[in-house]
Amino acid sequence: MIEVLGKKYVKEIILILGNNEEGIFFTDLIDEIGESSENIHQSAVSRSLNLMLENGLILRDDVFETNRRLPKSFYRLTELGKMALEIMKKDEELEKARRSKFHNEIKGNVGQVINIDKADGLEINFKKK
């Protein structure tokens, strides 16, 4: 399952579906992914959706409309997908905690860079350029 969760667009899809509990249409999903990814490939998103379907993370409903010949695909998370969403949220919390540790860089006139990181204690690294 970890391999599936690491595939392209899977994390984005799970997070978007998690924010749209009722579900979301494919075109709206593409739009939302496009807001965070510059070069979105619909075929890659479709492959990820199919992989997620095969692994029980999402469900797809085909919605038929009278003015359309083809159905619109509507996606939502399964219970397994909701569990994966919780893992994704914890992953984001860990990443925020990692990034939020104190980090400062001071550049001196002599071409030295001093990195100061604070986690449990204080660590000072000196680098010459």
Rank of each mutant, 00 (worst) to 15 (best):
S100D: 14
L94A: 12
I14V: 10
D62T: 09
A119C: 00
I106S: 03
E95T: 04
V10P: 12
L15T: 03
E38R: 14
G6M: 03
I14R: 01
I124W: 08
R98Y: 09
D31R: 14
L51G: 07
E92I: 03
L122A: 08
E54M: 11
F126G: 01
S36N: 03
L53Q: 13
E22W: 07
F74L: 13
D91E: 15
N115T: 11
V63W: 02
K11M: 06
Q112K: 12
N20I: 01
K11L: 05
R60M: 10
K7Y: 01
I30F: 01
I2G: 15
V45C: 08
S100F: 02
K127W: 01
G111D: 02
E35D: 08
E22S: 14
L59M: 14
L122P: 00
L15R: 12
E38Q: 10
G111A: 02
L80R: 13
V10G: 13
F126C: 03
R68N: 11
E54Y: 08
E21N: 05
D62S: 15
A44C: 01
A84V: 06
F26I: 06
P71E: 13
N19K: 14
N115W: 05
F26P: 10
K118A: 15
S48Y: 02
L17Y: 04
L51S: 11
I87V: 13
L17C: 09
E54S: 14
Q42M: 07
S37C: 07
L15A: 01
S73I: 09
Y75M: 07
I30P: 00
V4E: 08
I14N: 01
I24S: 07
K89A: 04
I114T: 14
M52W: 06
L5I: 09
L51A: 07
I33H: 05
K11A: 11
Y9K: 06
T27L: 05
L53F: 08
G81C: 06
F26S: 12
R68F: 07
E38L: 12
V45Q: 08
S37Q: 11
K127M: 10
S36P: 00
L17A: 05
L49S: 13
L94C: 06
A119K: 13
K127I: 07
T27C: 02
N39S: 15
V113A: 09
D61M: 04
L70Q: 12
I116A: 00
F64V: 06
K118S: 12
E3W: 04
K129M: 07
L53S: 13
N19Y: 09
K90E: 14
E86N: 15
N109A: 05
K7V: 00
S100I: 00
I114G: 05
V63F: 08
N115R: 07
A119W: 00
S36F: 00
G121V: 04
E86R: 15
A97W: 00
L57C: 03
T27Y: 12
E38C: 04
R47I: 06
L57T: 03
K11C: 03
E12F: 01
K128Y: 10
A119V: 10
L80E: 12
E32Y: 03
G111M: 04
K118I: 15
L77A: 02
L51R: 10
L5Q: 05
L15F: 03
Y9Q: 06
A97R: 08
L51K: 10
L49F: 10
K107W: 04
V4W: 02
E12N: 05
F26K: 14
K101T: 12
E79P: 10
N115C: 02
F74C: 07
M1E: 15
E54P: 00
D31L: 06
P71S: 11
I16A: 02
K11T: 03
